[in-house]
């Protein structure tokens, strides 16, 4: 059962990583517009628009 002394720290490190990723996503504004991406992905089929310049950061409004 000594393995538990390794497994638990590993799981806690993992937890820390997940929390950090989530907090980054919140700060990045990814939860500001939850409806948009669902529609956007369906409509962007044949138009070539410079997505790079559009994909940075969502609107603050």
């Amino acid at each position: 059962m000594e393995i538990i002394y390794l497994l638990i720290p590993v799981s806690i490190v993992l937890l820390g990583l997940i929390v950090w990723i989530f907090l980054w996503a919140v700060r990045d504004g990814q939860y500001e517009d939850l409806e948009g991406p669902a529609h956007r992905i369906l409509m962007d089929e044949d138009r070539v628009v410079d997505r790079q310049k559009n994909s940075r950061r969502g609107g603050a409004g």
Binding site: E32, D33, L34, E35, G36, H39, K53, N54, R56, R57, G58, G59, G61
Partner: peptide, 11 residues
């Protein structure tokens, strides 16, 4: 850059 927010209809 332009980004329209679906919920608030603001760009």
């Amino acid at each position: 850059q332009v980004r329209v927010n679906y919920a608030t209809q603001r760009a």
